Amino acid sequence: MQTRRKIMLWLVPVGLILLFLFVGVLPRIRNQQELQAAVEKEKNRIVQVNTTIASRSDATSNLTLPGQIQPLRETPIYARTQGFLRKRLVDIGSQVKKGQLLATLDAPELDQDIIRAQTDVKLAKANLDRVESVSLPGAVSQQDVDNRQALYEMNQANLRRIEVLKGLQEIRAPFNGVITSRNTEQGSLISVGNTIPLFTISQLDTLRVYTDVPQSYYRYIQVGQTVEVRVPEFPGKVFSGKVVRTAEALRSQSRTLLTEVVIPNSTRELVSGLYGQVNFQLSQAEPPVVIPANTLWITPEGPQVMLVKDDNTLQVQRVEISRDFGTTLEIGSGLQGGERLVVNPSDNLQQGQKVQPRAPANAKMASANASH
């Protein structure tokens, strides 16, 4: 009886232990095994990725830059002599020809200076003639003759100087153009050295456009190159122009090349000061690689893309972006063109990982068109 009781006492703990194993430990072990199997399955599973092809852009591309339209020539006109403005013959908007009289000055004291200079010339001439008329040898020294001759020539030079100043009282146009500013009124006192010009004249039958070409494109700009200029105020209209010169040096701050474009404006449709868009057609010996923006992968190491190699494994490739067009990117370095790129790469993808690429949509369309 006691032996049976001892056996029962041993069987109860053993049963509890077995029950604990079946209820607690074995299911946990089974769950761990299933989880590990799922991890291994996920690890060995080949991920499908969407791909696209990195392609090169066309050999000829367009570069559009903002430009400032200015007159071909623009000159402020100042007075070179002092006086009162007696008459003003033009105003803003006046069309003038080269040499046309714009205004006249009045300087009464200058008229008196001319009369005095003329009198001095006559007196010096009379004195010179008097000594030259003496026929008695030795009566007049040669030095006296030379002094009177020099005085006569000096008075002549002074008269010519004053007459030139008199001529400067007439303000004339230096070239054909339009008066674009006028800063004086009739009766105003005009002083030599005044920093405010009387008029500003601009040549508007031909205009120049200045624009700054970025450093990455300066080598494609050539003198004589034809460009197109568009102005928002003339929608749909294109003004043809030519590159006439460049600065031959980049600005140190903006790293741009100042470029001058000349456009004809015989109809005077355009006016100075307009804002325009200058379109250059660039011929590139090696067109840049262009990729969709959704293939770019931004990492702490910089911009990268994921390439799908021939064996369908992934390779991380660092790239340098030249220009951002929004939906597409121009790549400066890192790609040669023709590579398969992963679309919308995620952090779950790793270097060397095996993937199953899906053909890009353009490749499917190309094969469909070829079958037809």
Rank of each mutant, 00 (worst) to 15 (best):
K237G: 00
R160I: 09
L204R: 09
R172V: 15
L329V: 07
F175P: 10
Q215L: 00
I196A: 08
R318Y: 03
T328V: 14
V261L: 03
G276A: 15
S191A: 14
T75D: 08
Q118E: 15
N312Y: 06
A54R: 05
T52M: 10
T267A: 10
L26W: 10
L151K: 14
L105G: 02
Q100A: 15
I298L: 15
L296H: 00
V47D: 08
T60A: 15
L250A: 08
L63R: 01
K98E: 07
G67H: 08
G332K: 13
T295Q: 05
V243D: 03
L128D: 03
L21D: 06
D212P: 00
E260M: 10
V262Q: 10
A366H: 14
T184M: 15
S94M: 07
N344T: 06
E228A: 15
M1I: 03
G334C: 14
A368D: 13
L168K: 10
T195P: 15
K41E: 12
V271Y: 05
V308L: 09
V134G: 07
R30M: 14
Y218W: 06
F175Q: 11
V131I: 11
V14Q: 10
L250Q: 09
S283R: 11
G273L: 00
W10V: 09
L128Q: 11
E260V: 13
Q82W: 06
S141R: 12
Q36K: 12
Q215H: 01
P287K: 02
A157D: 02
R161Y: 13
F199N: 05
A37I: 09
A59N: 13
L270T: 11
S202W: 12
I201A: 06
P292H: 04
K98T: 05
I221W: 00
V134F: 11
R148C: 03
G332V: 03
L89D: 05
A38C: 07
G241A: 04
L159S: 09
S57R: 08
L110Q: 02
V238C: 11
T206D: 09
E109P: 01
T313M: 05
L341Y: 01
I69G: 01
V308F: 14
P13D: 06
S240E: 13
R56M: 11
I331N: 02
I115P: 05
L128C: 04
R255V: 01
S216L: 13
Q32W: 05
N348H: 12
K354F: 09
Q317H: 11
L9C: 04
L341K: 01
K41N: 12
V343R: 04
T200E: 07
D106C: 07
Q315G: 03
A361P: 01
S202R: 09
T327Y: 15
I171Q: 09
E40K: 02
